[in-house]
Design a binder for these strands. Structure first.
Lengths: 106, 106
DNA sequence: GGTGTATATACGCTTGCTGTAATACTTCTG
DNA sequence: CAGAAGTATTACAGCAAGCGTATATACACC
């Protein structure tokens, strides 16, 4: 499984979104994805671990998951070649993105 | 099938890459993906069509495929939230991307 | 040590994607 | 109109991904 496939799954994107706010124990992630059972979430976390998008740290009987966003650069690299083809009226979006790069809010 | 799933398939990314150079008839795309048969390529093109990543124009008995890169903005929007978490030593990459935005080569 | 909590793995099932082969459809050419 | 070229669709088989249930492992606390 590669990074592209990993983020193709909506639940896995949701997990990454949750972890982008802060690191969280597995149980907290399970609680948020209330449509899935605990084993299902655990398996998604395993996949994210295997492609390097998250890392785990044990904390007693808990496992604390944290985002490793730099693995997304593989996606970024691929998609960047296509930016030049976007319509001009999307400049606002692009500027917004550029600002995000230069003024990280956190 | 959504855009994330569509680009999760390596052959489909290859098709988009080919179309980013120029629009091409289906047969030319089939010739480039020599590991796949014609029907396989045709179905990948159908999927790309259905999610709006390419559009088709008939030219006699040929079908000319062209890229519609703006559909990739859905990916861009999602991934943009994660840029702030990338390590600082990747600034060079980010600058490169920003330049691409501002000075389209074509 | 025993019990409860937290997380991971095993298993069986189902669904959906991928590929090939065969076929149909459309358009061009003579 | 016949035949060929270009492309799409259908039919079928194989495989992988996802799910839930059940079970195992690891740690915590008494």
């Amino acid at each position: 499984m590669d990074v592209f496939e990993a983020i193709a799954e909506p639940s896995r994107r949701e997990l990454l979104d949750l972890l982008s706010e802060r690191e969280r124990p597995a149980g907290e992630l399970v609680a948020h994805l209330h449509k899935l059972t605990q084993p299902a979430v655990s398996r998604h976390l395993r996949i994210l671990r295997e492609v390097g998008l998250v890392e785990v740290r044990p904390d007693g009987q808990r496992r604390i998951y944290a985002l490793r966003a730099d693995r997304l650069i593989e996606i970024e690299n691929w998609i960047s070649r296509y930016r030049r083809y976007w319509p001009r009226h999307l400049d606002a979006l692009e500027n917004h993105l550029t600002q995000n790069q230069k003024e990280p809010t956190e």
